[in-house]
Design a protein around this nucleic acid. Structure first.
Lengths: 366, 366
DNA sequence: GGCGTGTGTGTTTGCGTTCACAGTGATCTC
DNA sequence: GAGATCACTGTGAACGCAAACACACACGCC
């Protein structure tokens, strides 16, 4: 039993004398130290740590006391080596300061922690397949139990096509990637609600400002808008390009004004763009909601305090994070026969504020 | 050398025949497999992996080829066990969806990756010392090389007082915690700039809406405002409480109006509150910047598209993340005699937009 | 009284990697 | 030509932990 035989310990002499805190020599205590102090075998210490049955209460107490006295901390890398698992979830995120991914990440960590898991993060600098592969490799090296991918771009889904099948993974807004289960917010449903809200107010000519190209959410929101318009038997108005930024919303507003299209309502794919759009309209003397109604998407923290307070669609990112963990751990721990039902959908809810009203001279539909 | 002696491998027979990809039995390849295929010892494989000198070019090539053929991936937990390090940075974050911490986290990961480090995240549910200790313990268990603490509350600093001295750590906005180096944005300087900007425009009665109690940034911004007012020989106007939210800014606006204090300028501790304040003023028919000038702090993405476009102070979170990693790795890798100069300050810059103007009838100061 | 079962503990072994050390030839030095 | 140095490679022993196995003892049962 070499640990304290001196050759390696920096301090000479009186080794097994009085192990006050830590171990003589300052080396962090290991199981053998605890075992020695408690007068049991290392295996018994392990049993105490892992809550195995069949450890006498008296023994357990002695071991716990020894651990406390030595300030023992179990070495998770050693444990991982032998158990071949780290109880760690790997999160792959596209490098971004956007509100959604960040919130999801935090709630995800919280949910993971509650279930005894840790979170290891890897961001990808761009959407190349290479970047993803690299991120996956790094996380695999750490023996993560599973992966959560927070990269809601189609490019990301494409890059994930070559995903290793042996590692459980959940994608957030992952679209319909084959073999990859996903947790998504009901983007289409949210967009339908937003558009219907405008329709119900009596609007007939409704434009859409789209989100960044290649983003799955942008597609879904566009689709929801189209669907709602079609359901109402109305032609879908103009679609203006955007990139999620307030700046692009502003530009869309200017383009809308320049085109002279007689719209009375606009469904904008996110709040930041909605805000830019409202500003462009205001600059041109167009009142919101007096002349044009605007609906956003996201329900950013300040949405209620914009001018006017923004009608928008709320996404529950905290719920997304929790569900991701649920889903992933189900895959990880569950009987492997678990069916990966295609996607878990978190509902989106319309939040009506003051940026929408009935168009002039037109009463709301019953 | 047991790895392929059959007893454990699922597949019977013909083991060392043709290891096409992975190893027979599907078990991931380990060093010994690579070594066998390349006709060298495991030690040589290790040397190739770690770029040791003194490996013949021809040998290296053979090893690399074998690794490729077997799809070998080095097991970082095993490596960590023996080297006693994981090249991982632990990040402790207060559970929040706020813009600053999230941006910092992402840029931090990027900087870490560039330097060959990984990032492990632990959030704390509240500011209790217990929560911090728990987070630190979990990260230590993973043998992180160092810690970055993203918790800019005084409570956090207090909780960190009992920080283990043997683990290098860097605090973001960590105030003056003893023995803990920190990276901070020049909050005071930013606040001074913001206030001076108002003073230069000719404002004399300037109020302040404070940030959330217990936050270091809130204190610093308050202090900067006081300092600038004092330097100008003016009495500091009223201070209104806030909690960073747009809602609290709105309330502050109402309170200001109710109090009937004749201020012409307001320095608000963050943009979200500034936006709420502007809204409250607008509702009361007070024009910004016509009647009152407003300066925020943060430069959120949409600041330029608010009504009016917000004059504010920008914080470079990406830079903060990079500096954190620099600093931490200096501590981790550097000669341990490295002096921990107290705090590394990242400058803040004033961004002048349209929410500020000279007060009515008063020309700007030269 | 022998057998099974349940409870509690120790011994041995191996997880996959790196470190310390010990070689091997070859080339160089005086 | 004996030794020293260089370039390269292999051997054994850890690292700290948990699984497999073995063992010891107590109790109940027929």
């Amino acid at each position: 039993m070499p640990p304290l035989t001196g050759r390696r310990s920096g301090q000479p002499g009186r080794v097994s004398g009085g192990a006050r805190s830590r171990t003589a020599g300052g080396r962090p205590a290991v199981m053998a130290d605890v075992a020695r102090l408690a007068g049991v075998s290392a295996q018994t210490v392990s049993r105490v740590l892992n809550d195995h049955p069949y450890v006498a209460e008296e023994t357990r107490a002695r071991v716990v006391a020894a651990m406390l006295e030595l300030g023992y901390r179990r070495n998770l890398t050693a444990r991982a080596l032998v158990t071949r698992r780290t109880d760690t979830i790997g999160v792959i995120a596209f490098d971004t300061g956007l509100y959604g991914p960040a919130s999801t990440l935090f709630s995800l960590e919280q949910a993971a922690r509650e279930r005894g898991y840790h979170v290891h993060v890897a961001t990808v600098p761009d959407l190349s397949e290479e970047g993803f592969v690299d991120a996956v490799e790094r996380l695999r090296g750490h023996l993560v139990s599973g992966l959560v991918v927070l990269a809601p771009q189609r490019g990301a889904v494409r890059a994930m096509a070559g995903f290793p099948g042996d590692l459980p993974a959940v994608a957030v807004e992952g679209g319909a990637a084959p073999g990859l289960t996903s947790v998504v917010v009901d983007q289409v449903g949210g967009a339908v609600q937003a558009t219907r809200h405008l329709l119900d107010l009596g609007h007939r000519r409704i434009a859409h400002v789209a989100g960044r190209e290649d983003w799955i959410e942008a597609d879904a929101r566009l689709q929801g808008w189209q669907q709602a318009m079609a359901d109402a038997g109305l032609p879908a108005g103009p679609v203006l390009p955007g990139d999620w930024s307030a700046r692009s919303g502003h530009e869309a507003g200017l383009a809308l004004l320049a085109a002279g299209v007689p719209v009375t309502g606009v469904f904008v794919a996110n709040d930041h763009m909605a805000l830019g759009l409202v500003r462009a309209l205001a600059e041109a003397g167009v009142d919101v909601p007096g002349d044009v109604s605007v609906v956003g998407f996201d329900d950013i923290a300040e949405a209620g305090y914009l001018r006017p307070p923004l009608t928008t669609v709320r996404q529950d990112f905290a719920e997304v994070g929790r569900r991701c963990v649920d889903r992933l751990l189900h895959l990880v721990e569950g009987p492997d026969g678990s069916p990966p039902e295609d996607a878990l959908v978190v509902p989106a809810t319309l939040v009506v504020r003051a940026s929408t009203a009935s168009p002039a001279g037109e009463p709301p539909r019953p």
